[in-house]
Design a protein around this nucleic acid. Structure first.
Length: 120
DNA sequence: CGTATGACGAGCC
DNA sequence: AGGCTCGCCATAC
């Protein structure tokens, strides 16, 4: 059936058939409830300091119900990225607030407080 | 295989 | 402080 046809040999660490997206999802699942990480941080942890945009692509393709806390990833400014539709933005903020994350008057999250401290 | 896109980021004005 | 531009990386076509 549909051949996977994906260049798996390009994967960094992990398994050879593990795509960058899967790596992003796996790492995103490690973000504890009530905390947030930035796209750049995820990219950096994956070994691609400048791959923040690629991380955004990965999270954007997250299938619903995949168990990936996509809401816990925001931009370096501590703000929820625009996304495709405004509803998604509102939803992301809603979900974060439910976890206890607080937004200031400028719709910003204080990363010094809620920023995820990468695991050891 | 080359071009274009996009939930980013840092620098510059 | 706020807004605009260029650069980076991984997919889609």
């Amino acid at each position: 059936m549909g051949t996977p046809s994906r260049q798996a040999g390009r994967s960094r660490r992990g398994r050879p058939d593990d795509s960058f997206y899967q790596q992003v999802y796996r790492l995103a699942r490690l973000i504890p409830r009530g905390q947030v990480a930035t796209y750049g941080q995820i990219a950096w942890l994956l070994g691609v300091p400048r791959g923040a945009r690629a991380v955004g692509w990965a999270l954007r393709a997250v299938p619903g119900g995949a168990g990936v806390p996509w809401q816990r990833v925001v931009n370096a400014a501590g703000r929820v990225s625009e996304g495709r539709s405004r509803s998604e933005v509102v939803l992301q903020r809603f979900l974060l607030e439910q976890e206890g994350v607080v937004f200031d008057e400028n719709d910003r999250i204080d990363l010094e407080i809620y920023g995820w401290e990468r695991p050891a």
